[in-house]
């Protein structure tokens, strides 16, 4: 495993920990989109169907369990925990996530490498992950008042995507036959979605002012 990949996984892990920290210790999910969190739970559930059938490494299995466990517990917290539930900004989190799930499913049925259940589900999860952040970005833009932990959560998620792109470039030049168009194009689309947020995040950090997004 190369350094970009490891750094990518670690920033992904940090983003989840930041979010769990916010939810678990402060008992608040203000500014967090339940729609995005539900989409991530669906992404991991459909991607890691191989968790008990294909063993890759202990690292791989443990990370999969962490991402599955954390995404479902975040959804549980936001839906069922009395205090956390109260801080959920339901009125602004109105993105219709069916509008993302259905096109991704259709696209996965049309464009995939093998027409098997596991492969189509895996491809669906790749497409869905690319756009799953959209409800969160829309919510940020609507609330405009972004607290530090929420900003850091989205920043680390974006960092994870950018590092994965560097990882793919590295692997392409160092490993034979390393070509994965579906993953690359989806990953690129996903990273581009963060570009706008990154711009405002970094300029607010540079100018040492609170992060706000333009309307």
């Amino acid at each position: 495993m190369n350094a970009f990949r490891l750094a990518g996984d670690m920033t992904h892990l940090i983003s989840v920990l930041v979010l769990l920290l916010k939810i678990h210790t402060i008992k608040s999910c203000a500014g967090i989109s339940l729609k995005t969190q539900e989409l991530y739970a669906l992404v991991f559930a459909t991607r890691y169907l191989d968790i008990f059938t294909d063993f890759i490494s202990l690292y791989n299995t443990v990370m999969k369990l962490i991402f599955l466990g954390s995404s479902f517990s975040i959804v549980w917290y936001m839906r069922r925990h009395k205090l956390v539930q109260r801080s959920y900004d339901k009125d602004h989190d109105t993105f219709r996530h069916q509008l993302l799930v259905l096109p991704c499913l259709i696209l996965a049925l049309l464009i995939h490498e093998q027409f098997t259940f596991k492969e189509v589900m895996w491809t669906f999860s790749i497409y869905l992950e690319a756009v799953a952040i959209l409800p969160q970005l829309v919510l940020l833009q609507r609330t405009r008042n972004i607290d530090n932990l929420t900003g850091q959560y989205v920043f680390f998620l974006g960092a994870y995507r950018s590092l994965y792109i560097l990882n793919w470039i590295y692997r392409y030049f160092t490993e034979p036959h390393y070509v994965h168009w579906i993953t690359w194009i989806s990953g690129l689309v996903q990273t581009l979605l963060y570009a706008d947020f990154f711009y405002y995040y970094i300029s607010s950090w540079k100018n040492n002012v609170k992060l706000t997004l333009p309307a």
């Binding site: 294909d54 490498e113 036959h177």
Partner: peptide, 10 residues
């Protein structure tokens, strides 16, 4: 062709 164990990314 995808080789077995190639999906080593998360």
């Amino acid at each position: 062709i995808r080789l077995k164990g190639e999906k080593d990314e998360l």
